[in-house]
Design a protein around this nucleic acid. Structure first.
Lengths: 137, 137
DNA sequence: ATTAGTCACTTGCATTTTGCAAGTATCTGG
DNA sequence: CCAGATACTTGCAAAATGCAAGTGACTAAT
């Protein structure tokens, strides 16, 4: 009695990829993670301005799809880092295909290259200031 | 006063591509057109079962995005053929990237290869039967 | 000790988009 | 005249999206 339906729509690789990534935001989150952004706040500050409830939802979905991992990278206060799994990093090719197509066929579009910090300040000596006399309570 | 905003979200090629194609259906329609399907009915009969109102909406959007063209291929009765423009065909690379990623990372998924007709009959001698004594009113 | 600020989310709610089912219009063949 | 395609529309309920504001944990400044 093998009546279980393994796929939501069909066995097509494209259809199933779109069931996970087929919306306006998921691949942008993956793009940002590939660019080195790691925290919720960094992701929220992307130029496209993703609503924070959507960001939370997408991260959850990407985590449960095995594309992203969430791990605490510091205690006091606890802060989480979102990083791509190998499955997630492999989406680089898909993103690249989109970049090529977009640049060629949508005039004015460009490849965004930016580090984790987004803005212009705070780039170089990051994370050094906070490291002095951590009082552990 | 160049205050016009040329882009909905940002100049990123990926973001703008997703503004056009970022949903669960658009790229499946493109896939089918690449596979040689041409009519509304053929597209509607795809294994994923796209709702017909969504199909009509997506075709309209793809046409206005310059990805698809709609042309009548016969009179009496008028029948329309949807075909990809060069801009649309160029999405083949994006689809290919999705297929590769999907097959590698979503177990059980496959590349669907199928002609315009979908099922198993009706494949070879198509379009010959109807060509006999067209009575023009 | 109170106050202000940051980070990572949640919640409420109005608007928009989906999805399903049915209906319509045009034309053909029997 | 009637059944059957083909190519869409329409109505409506359900789900997803987007905006603004709120929450809780923690820290740094006053």
């Amino acid at each position: 009695m093998n009546t279980a339906k393994p796929f939501a729509r069909s066995a097509c690789a494209i259809a199933n990829s779109l069931d996970i990534l087929g919306d306006k935001w998921s691949l942008l989150v993956v793009r940002d993670l590939l660019h080195g952004k790691r925290t919720y706040g960094e992701l929220a500050r992307s130029p496209e301005g993703i609503p924070t409830n959507i960001l939370a939802d997408r991260l959850e979905r990407l985590v449960s799809a095995g594309i992203v991992t969430r791990t605490p990278y510091q205690q006091r206060p606890v802060r989480y880092a979102y990083t791509l799994t190998p499955k997630g990093s492999a989406l680089g090719d898909v993103l690249l295909a989109f970049v090529r197509w977009g640049k060629q066929h949508i005039s004015g579009t460009v490849t965004l290259k930016q580090g984790p910090a987004g803005g212009e300040g705070a780039a170089s000596g990051a994370h050094s200031r906070r490291t002095r006399a951590k009082r552990v309570r």
